[in-house]
Amino acid sequence: MHIVVCIKQVPDSAQIRVHPVTNTIMRQGVPTIINPYDLFALEEALKVRDHHGGEVTVLTMGPPMAEEALRKALTYGADRAILLTDRHFAGSDTLATSFALSQAISQIGNSFDTPDIVFTGKQTIDGDTAQVGPGIAKRLNLVQLTYVAKITSIDLSARAITVERRSEGGTHVLKSELPCLITMLEGTTVIRRGSLDDALRAARSEIVKWNAAEAGIEDITKCGLRGSPTVVKRVFAPTPREQKAVQIDTTEKRVHDIANELVASIFTHQPALQHELSSAGSA
């Protein structure tokens, strides 16, 4: 069984700072991490491999420094890592990203073994569109299984797979076929600590690096800026609210008096609430 996991290196956005004067993003010195959602995809892939045998290949498209993310993925136990890097990819939107990644996945199939499952995370924490997974599935004509909470069963010989997919208000049980693309939900599984062996292996491993041509991409106009129909035209700060909160005076008051004052203030702001709350509440 061959599994490809797509991971993205993202800024650790908890630490992203916006320049207070120019409103531009200050990327310098911001640490990068593997997109946290992708770790669930990787863990699920490793579990499937551990159970059914085979190999896990991790793939990322990004600048040369994205190699760090791949090496990290190897420490978790991935078998092979491929970095897709080429300046032609700069400025890709999701359509161009999914094009490049799907070409690379085809090339992985040619060079190693055709994947039975391609995993992606649910979404990233920077672009945050959740569009790349469906884009890859469509381009490779793979069955698309998004928001998967659980893989219930895989029958390799029958090429069958059953999954639970989160949907609005419940969970769908879907029966489908391999090969497929799965976007994995977060919080579905506990992420392993890599073994010492894997850490040593990761440090020694050669990361395969492909440029566009090596990934089998002939039509470079489908990549990067030129291959991206969407364009970011303007970046700006949200308008701050005019007024700050009206503070309830709490000096030297008993907590009940403060609560009384708050409730009075709520009903002054929104008189209609008095009736709505009383008819809705169970008091």
Partner: peptide, 11 residues
């Protein structure tokens, strides 16, 4: 970037 900025996108 988590809501700290907005961007306007065209197709």
């Amino acid at each position: 970037f988590g809501g700290s900025l907005l961007c306007t996108i065209y197709t």
